[in-house]
């Protein structure tokens, strides 16, 4: 139920946007986020973008892992 997947925004038609989910396109709502642009990654849950995720943040876990391993 609480499954959410990251998807890339390819077109904006406020309050909707079209996202690409590994090639599959879907129309979602994005109006609970501010400042959404084409090319952004968002977490999509049942047709609503619930958060922006940056590629940098996706890399954060790798940094945390590295930190633990170096301790």
């Amino acid at each position: 139920m609480c499954l959410a997947v990251p998807a890339e925004i390819v077109e904006i038609d406020w309050p909707y946007a079209t996202v690409s989910l590994g090639g599959a396109r879907r129309r979602i709502r994005v109006d609970l986020l501010d400042d959404v642009n084409v090319g952004d990654y968002v977490l999509v849950h049942v047709g609503l973008a619930i958060q922006k995720v940056s590629k940098k943040e996706v890399q954060e876990i790798e940094r945390l892992w590295q930190q633990i391993l170096e301790e």
Binding site: L32, L33, L43, I50, Q51, V53, S54, V58, I61, L64
Partner: peptide, 18 residues
């Protein structure tokens, strides 16, 4: 918070409001 790539301290404030 291990899931920093998706979770902020304050969460999604607009979502909480609606």
């Amino acid at each position: 918070n291990e899931y920093t790539r998706a979770v902020k301290y304050e969460g999604n404030v607009m979502a909480q409001k609606v």
